[in-house]
Structures are given as C-alpha cells and as structure tokens.
C-alpha cells in the first residue's frame, strides 16, 4: 500500500481559501447586520385592540366606522361583526355599496360578509375578533381574525 505524501489540499491553497472564506463571512455578517436595521422590532402604530362602545348603544341594523380605524362594525340580528375595510388586493379602503363592499382602486367587489364576488382581491375581507372588555364595552382586536359567520352576542 503506497501512501501518497501529497496533501489533498496544498498548505498555501488552504490558507488562501480560509482567508477568502473569512472575508466573505465578514462581508455577509456586516451586510446582514446593516440590513437588519431596516426591520424594526416593534411597529410604530396604535394598539390593534381598541374599544368601540357599549353594546346597548348599537341599534340592530346599525353600521359604524370607529374613528380612525379601517373597520366596519355591524350590529346584525345574529350579533356583532367587525369586518375589515382594507381591500385584500392592494390595501385600498372599500366602500359600502351594492352588492356589499366595493374597492375604488381596482374594482374588487365583495358580498355583505366580505366574500370576493369579482375582481382581483385574492381573499375575503377578514372578520376581526370582538370581545367584551372588563368595563363592559365591546372591543375589537385586529390581530385576531375569526372565521366568517362568527357573530358576537353581547
């Protein structure tokens, strides 16, 4: 059995590759570090959970747009619903118009429950969770969605 005395990688090549590798690693680490600056740990925005008033203040059949929020609150005979007013296509604000909601930007149309009827919107308007705050007011949490048809009974 003959043992080859030639190393598989020459010492000089090995050192060169090591240098190149550490150079690339340093570049990648510093670029990654700098880029991470663009991704904030917390988003500067108001709380996504907010109160909308006492349930008794809503008449059945009433629709409300809480101040500064892009959401529709319906008090239907079945209960309370919070449907997002932000079009799932490209973020425009839908209007309430027949057949239910219409987006002014690219013409998506939704039925009164937010289901896409027509246009480019890829998904239905989400329903947000409604719950009862300790002080008795209704509160909407935009970070939690419920499946369409889930009504909140006050």
């Amino acid at each position: 059995m003959s043992v080859s005395t030639d190393p598989p990688v020459k010492r000089r090549d090995f050192l060169g590759l090591t240098a190149l590798g550490s150079f690339l690693a340093a570049v990648a680490a510093s670029v990654g570090g700098m880029l991470s600056l663009a991704f904030p740990r917390a988003f500067p925005e108001p709380s996504r959970r907010y109160k909308i008033g006492l349930a008794n203040d809503f008449r059945v059949g009433e629709v409300r747009r809480p101040e500064g929020r892009n959401v529709f609150i319906f008090h239907r005979p079945e209960g309370f619903v919070a449907i997002s007013a932000v079009c799932t296509h490209l973020g425009c604000i839908v209007n309430q118009a027949p057949p239910g909601f219409v987006c002014p930007c690219h013409g998506s149309r939704f039925d009164p429950n937010g289901k896409v009827l027509q246009g480019p919107a890829p998904s239905p308007l989400p329903w947000y969770e409604i719950s009862l705050a300790p002080d008795g007011q209704l509160q909407v949490d935009e970070s939690r969605t419920v499946s369409a048809g889930t009504y909140f009974q006050a």
Binding site: H89, L90, I93, P104, C105, H106, G107, P120
Partner: peptide, 26 residues
C-alpha cells in the same frame, strides 16, 4: 387621508400599464 382613497386612485402614467395588469392579479 388614510381612511378615504382617491377614486380612481391612479399612479403616474408610466406605472399605469402595470396598474392595469395589477387589476387582474396583484
């Protein structure tokens, strides 16, 4: 006004060709 979009909301002319395509699929 973040609550009321322009209707129609149109980009500058050189992006409107894309906006037309976007109205089929974003």
């Amino acid at each position: 006004n973040p609550l009321v979009p322009e209707n129609p909301a149109k980009a500058p002319w050189y992006f409107l060709g894309l906006q037309e395509l976007v109205s089929y699929s974003a």
